[in-house]
């Protein structure tokens, strides 16, 4: 394959990676931004979304897109409700203490993983894409659904951005993010905001997983990588900055794609990881974070 087509493929793949990263990270960006808690179970919420998509695909008859739409609605609701319960039963009682939250969410991560293993099983299972379209370029073929994922990621990010900037709920969340004590003084029910944010973050992760699972597969350990990558994206982008999250996802996705053109795969991964780490070393507040 010539250099041109190779580069084109690397860029397309990088874009898809960036889309997947931003879908996984947008929920964490909200939770981390507003609540300042490290939610280790975030990846498990993502996994649950994929697993629910698989169950729904088996229950909804008819064409694949009907099951896909059903899962797109159902998975965020179920996972969001679960997250609200975790918030009310555990995190609230810990008063969102950063250290205690880490231990508690590690515990939640173990429980969710075991539940998925017991009720869903250890196998990796495919979920059909809502439509089956593949196009052939002169040098290689490509999945049309992957491009749809890119478009969906843009739509989700846009919706979250509009929600945060144009609605009352968004205003309340931003106020709480800036200073929870002041927010409380202005009569905002901070606890309800936190519960809503936590549920919303988990629901977004689940929705991202429903979009992602047709180009991957559902597996009970699949939450691990989205968790780490989401944290990386959120911190590189700068805490609480949606624009930062998007730019960081693009930086990581595209550098991963392009570097893999020049080196053997494992070496490319090492170099891409170090490169992204260096962004933080030389810009500790992240790309779009305010100076501390």
């Amino acid at each position: 394959m010539g250099f041109g087509p190779f580069l084109l493929l690397a860029l397309m793949e990088g874009l898809v990676t960036a889309a997947v990263l931003s879908l996984a990270a947008v929920g964490l960006s909200l939770v981390f931004g507003v609540m300042r808690v490290v939610n280790v179970a975030h990846g498990e919420f993502f996994m649950l979304g994929a697993v629910i998509a698989w169950f729904v695909a088996g229950l909804v008859p008819g064409p694949a897109w009907m099951a896909f739409l059903a899962a797109l609605v159902l998975a965020p609701l179920v996972v969001g409700a679960l997250a609200a319960a975790v918030d009310g039963l555990v995190l609230k009682r810990l008063n969102y203490d950063p250290e205690a939250t880490i231990v508690a969410t590690i515990g939640v991560m173990y429980m969710v993983q075991q539940a998925a293993l017991s009720f869903y099983g250890p196998d990796a299972r495919p979920v059909a894409a809502p439509f089956d379209w593949r196009f052939q370029l002169p040098w290689f073929g490509y999945s049309g659904y992957k491009l749809f994922v890119v478009a969906a990621a843009v739509a989700v990010l846009l919706a979250v951005w509009l929600g945060m900037t144009r609605t009352r709920a968004g205003l309340v969340m931003r106020a709480t993010q800036v200073d929870r004590d002041v927010a409380r003084a202005f009569g905002i029910d901070v606890e309800r905001v936190y519960m809503g944010t936590f549920a919303l973050g988990a629901g977004l992760a689940a929705m991202g997983a429903v979009l992602y699972v047709p180009i991957s597969q559902a597996h009970y350990l699949m939450g691990h990588d989205p968790l780490l990558l989401s944290f990386i994206v959120v911190i590189i982008g700068g805490l609480g900055s949606l624009r930062g999250t998007l730019v960081a996802a693009l930086v990581i996705g595209l550098s991963d794609g392009v570097i893999s053109m020049f080196f053997s795969p494992t070496l490319a991964k090492i170099l891409a990881t170090l490169l992204v780490a260096m962004v933080l070393v030389f810009r500790p507040q992240g790309l779009f974070g305010a100076k501390a």
């Binding site: 990796a124 597969q217 794609g257 893999s260």
Partner: peptide, 28 residues
């Protein structure tokens, strides 16, 4: 978890592609 970007490294004159992937990402 995704592999497409490595496929251009497969030389065009390849007659046999020998694959031994394991783990959940194999389907992908």
């Amino acid at each position: 978890t995704s592999f497409t970007r490595y496929f251009p490294q497969i030389p065009a004159e390849t007659e046999v592609l020998y694959h031994v992937m394991v783990g959940p990402a194999v389907l992908t």
